[in-house]
Structure formats: structure tokens, C-alpha cells
Write a protein that binds this DNA or RNA. Structure first.
Ligand code: MN
Ligand code: MN
Ligand code: MN
Ligand code: MN
Lengths: 225, 225
DNA sequence: ATTATTAGTTAGGTAATACTAACTATTATA
DNA sequence: TATAATAGTTAGTATTACCTAACTAATAAT
């Protein structure tokens, strides 16, 4: 039996070691890094590491970095899968807002029922990506791959679809909401201003100007049409 | 904040004091009664009673019986409501079996999101009864009333609809499943055998004989047709 | 009215999960 | 290389939620 708390540690380790945006190859994780991500003290994390090691979910030697065992990774990916499936359910079937889904999914991800996960997956039509555009691991833990680029890398005159965001802070999500940008929003790239590297875009025939910082945090798929 | 464990205690108190089948007027609950229902030791329950009293959820004087405060009752009814809404959701939207839903709802009932409960309620069309035929408290805690009688009290020749069961043990539910009896199953009462008080019934033109004990645990609504 | 039984409480202990404060090991910098 | 900074561990404490064993209070039986 893996406790709710242990599940959250595994999910965090998955995230920090290879699922976080910008992490290309798997990287080892430090105690303090994990503690600060979970908003806990490193002594607390240190105790839990002993328990996770005991349960053969992580590898960890005193004063060394942490890696997930195959079992730890599988179990962690199951939580990620449930989290993202629930987010998709809340968004597409219950009309929750983009911003609200995470907090509720944080609870729902811990419901223990293989059958329930399978039924929700089926109900949603076996989606590959959640409403934030993040890939949903399949039941074996396989993560669907995506070809995305930053909006700032899109060529002038091209249209693209928002697939994901690389910043999920409330500030950023609220700003996007104001602009009317969410997953699957179509954006046309009108112009790139050399002076401040800001970008002129078009959403449903309305034009907006966004900063390079914003454009860098929007991951898109260029449209071929 | 009411913890998951505290919520389960409140739900148990609601059940034992007025929601259990056969309990007509509200009755006070004893420490041991609660302990045995929750499959805990009375010392454990005794400790929790202190905390629940501290939080103004129950009234309890040393060596006396337990009663719920208005706050305790409201909070307990919210859990009952969520439990029964989730059971309905699993049964009607995800094709779960009658027998499987309880265990999963036992987890889902603790998800904290007013909005989620409301959305599920709406998705289900604001149902008054769950798949076991038990009433679903509304958002204010009001419990819809029903006119039911035991199958054994139905007159010979009449037809009736199963609304609820007063025994929810796995053994009984499995037996009903074998007979093809579930909520909303139509049963015709063919004959009552005086000798052993067994009852001859008809389900979809097939005849069966059931014991008085079984008939007593089936709550039905006589059909007027 | 005693006494036996049942109901309820108290004391003391454990495991999981958190904390602070104080320590040690590793790594970076001058 | 010596020292400072960072990373990680240990010790001791708290809370929640469970336990067993031993007790006391209330109630039923003789
Ligand atoms: Mn999320
Ligand atoms: Mn979580
Ligand atoms: Mn149930
Ligand atoms: Mn429960």
C-alpha cells in the first residue's frame, strides 16, 4: 500500500526528474530540491526518503541524489495519469474552468480504483493530452510525445494551435484567460517587433501584442493549412 | 476543517441515529455501538468523541449517550449526499455494478469541492434516490421521503418495484444479483406459502421462491396498474 | 441489596507525517 | 588548501489516529 503522501512524493520525483518543462534527459533529484518543490522541510523529506527506499520505490544513499526505481516510476506515472485524466474529465464533461481543475484533480488522483480510471479514460475517448496540453501516460506508463515549439519561434504569417504552457502559475493562466488564450486556441502570428522582441498576434481576427516572455511560455503546433 | 476520519464518524452517527433502516425517530448512540459499527475499539472512539465535541460537532457528557449538534448533522448529511451522488454517477454514467459502487464512493465522498458536487448532481439530473434506492439529501440536507413497504407485505396478485434493500451485506447483494433483482426490478407477487412463510414471485415471467427473510429485506413500491 | 455484566473511560504505547534546531558532509571560492 | 556556503542528516517534539490493558460507572440479575 502506497499512502497518499507517498504518492505525492513519487509524483514530485517524476516531475522533477523528467516531466518538468525543460528537462530533456532524466536527472537525479536532491533532497532540498524535492523539499522546496513540496513546500516541506528537508528533514521531513529525509525521513520519507527512508520509507520510500524501504518500500523499494527509490534508490538513495546517504548524502547522494535520489532516483526512482522502476516500481517507483510506474507508481508515480499512475498518479500523473490519474491527475491528468481527472483534469480532462472536469474540463470537458463538467465545464470546470481551466484554472480550477488542478486543485480538485490533486484530490481525485488518489482515488484507488483501476476500474474507475479505465472507465473515465474510455468516457473521455482515450485522450493523449490534458486541458493544459500535457501528455497523459497510458495505462502502461507510456508518455505520448508531441512536436511543439515556442510561439516566439513561429514564422510570421503562420497560424498555430496552443498545445501547452510552460508556466502554470495562476498569474500567467489568468493573463491568458484575459487574452482569451487556452488550449486549442488558434493564434496567427502577424509580426515580430525587433525593437523589444514583442510579438503581434491575431486571435479570432482581433489583434494583440504580447511580450517575448509570454510567447516563450506558449507551446504551439504550427498549422499546415 | 473536518478530517476524513472525522467525516466518517459523523456519517456513522447520522446512520446509527436516524438513517439506518428500521430507525423511525432519532435515537441517541452509544460509544460501543459506534465503535462496533466502525470496527474500531471503544477507546479509540472515546478519544475521537473528545475532538468532535471540541469542534462542536457532537454533544457528549461522560458516560452518557452521543447526539449530533446541528453543525455535526449538516456536515454528516453532506457526506451522505456526496456518497450517494457518487454511487449514482458510477452506476448510471460509468456502468459500474450495483455491488462495486459503495467501496469507490467511500473514497469519493471525501473530495472537497462544492462545485464538483453541484456539477455531478446536475449531470445526473438532480436524482432523489441512489442506485440502492436510498434517499439523497439535497444541498440543504433535506432528505426526500418515500412510501415503501416490505415485499412480504405486498398483496398476492400485485406487482411492485424494488426501491431499496434493508440489508447491504455482500452476501445479500450477490444473492439478489443471482436472482436478477436490483433497484427498479419489477416483481410480481404470485403466492404466499403459509407453511414456511416463503413467497413465490415472478420476475420477467420467470418464477422464483424466496424466504421470508429475503422478502423482509426488499423494500418496494406497489404498482397501481 | 449484592453481585455480575455491560458500557464507557483512562493510561500508556505505536506509526505516519509534519516541525525546529543542531549537527555533519560535500562543494565552491578565495 | 583553508574557509565559506550549500546540501543533507539527526535528535527531539507535536498531532492524528489507531491499539491493549486496566480501570470505573451504570445497569441487570439474583
Ligand atoms: Mn494539474
Ligand atoms: Mn495529490
Ligand atoms: Mn454506499
Ligand atoms: Mn468514507
Amino acid at each position: 500500500m502506497i499512502s497518499l503522501t507517498e504518492e505525492n512524493y513519487l509524483k514530485a520525483l517524476i516531475y522533477l526528474s523528467f516531466l518538468a518543462p525543460g528537462v530533456e534527459e532524466k536527472k537525479d533529484v536532491g533532497t532540498n530540491e524535492l523539499a522546496s518543490y513540496l513546500k516541506l522541510k528537508s528533514s521531513t523529506v529525509n525521513e520519507m526518503l527512508k520509507r520510500l527506499k524501504e518500500k523499494n520505490l527509490i534508490n538513495h544513499e546517504k548524502y547522494k541524489k535520489i532516483t526512482l526505481t522502476p516500481s517507483g516510476e510506474q507508481n508515480g506515472l499512475k498518479i500523473v495519469r490519474k491527475h491528468r485524466l481527472w483534469e480532462t474529465f472536469l474540463f470537458t464533461k463538467l465545464d470546470f474552468d481551466w484554472i480550477e481543475i488542478h486543485e480538485v484533480a490533486e484530490q481525485l488522483e488518489h482515488i484507488k480504483s483501476e476500474k474507475l480510471v479505465g472507465k473515465i479514460d474510455k468516457l473521455l475517448g482515450y485522450p493523449n493530452f490534458d486541458p493544459h496540453g500535457d501528455p497523459i501516460p497510458d495505462k502502461h506508463g507510456k508518455i505520448p510525445q508531441r512536436i511543439t515549439k515556442n510561439l516566439s519561434a513561429v514564422d510570421i504569417g503562420k497560424n498555430c494551435i496552443v498545445l501547452a504552457v510552460s508556466d502554470t502559475s495562476k498569474d500567467f493562466l489568468n493573463y491568458l484567460e484575459d487574452l482569451g488564450i487556452s488550449i486549442k486556441t488558434e493564434i496567427g502570428l502577424i509580426d515580430k517587433i525587433a525593437y523589444d522582441r514583442s510579438i503581434k498576434i491575431k486571435i479570432k481576427d482581433k489583434q494583440y501584442s504580447i511580450s517575448k516572455k509570454v510567447a516563450d511560455n506558449l507551446l504551439v503546433n504550427e498549422k499546415f493549412n
